[in-house]
Design a protein around this nucleic acid. Structure first.
Lengths: 109, 109
DNA sequence: CGTGTAAGGAATTCTGACACG
DNA sequence: CGTGTAAGGAATTCTGACACG
């Protein structure tokens, strides 16, 4: 039941200018891919966007696909498919864990 | 001979304002600890400071020690000692590796 | 020593919009 | 559709300095 929810890779701490340097994309492009729901930066109270290393990697992957002529809409569809797979895996894991716990409790008493 | 020099933890990508939020320190304090050579942020071409997660952790450690009344000069001395230990470990590892390679080369021919 | 603050300037980021192809 | 750009404003960051205890 441990939870290290703050891994460096997922923590949203990078400003858009740094993301630009890291990815080679323009600030306009980075904002546009957010508009198309391909990335989801956090916002500070003042409204500035903060990205994670994970977001940066996603942007590089998007850049590769765009170079191959893939439209953002297609990339979005692939992303949703991948998310669906993850959702199902998690559901399955949760159920297996539930079964295991049930057995353990049987044995304990 | 591999080299993954760009681990998320060491990459300098975080602006001082974000470091302030992450550590609870004031911007003044963060700059001052740099002046005392306790942390070493990178600089962009335009001169803005960039910190790594590692720097952030160091700052939190510094904050703890300052709360205990430890002066920056003392913290600096501890830091240098730790660095010296690391330097010696690396030297030893390098030498061991050299010995191993020498043996391998003997056997190979 | 360690930290706050006001000062002046430069660079960053934000949004909404027009342009182009 | 995807990206550039100019516009206006707000927030960020930088340095060097004075203040205080």
């Amino acid at each position: 039941m441990s939870n290290e929810s703050s891994s460096y890779k997922e923590k949203k701490v990078i400003s858009i200018g740094t993301v630009k340097d890291l990815t080679g994309l323009s600030v306009r492009q980075i904002r546009y891919y957010e508009e198309r729901n391909l990335i989801f930066p956090a916002r500070t109270e003042k409204g500035t966007r903060k990205y994670s290393f994970s977001d940066v990697e996603m942007l590089m992957s998007i850049a590769d696909k765009r170079e191959d002529g893939v439209q953002t809409h297609e990339i979005r569809k692939e992303l949703k498919k991948a998310e669906e797979r993850t959702r199902k895996e998690q559901l399955r894991d949760t159920m297996i864990r539930g079964q295991l716990n049930a057995h353990f409790n049987m044995i304990k008493r």
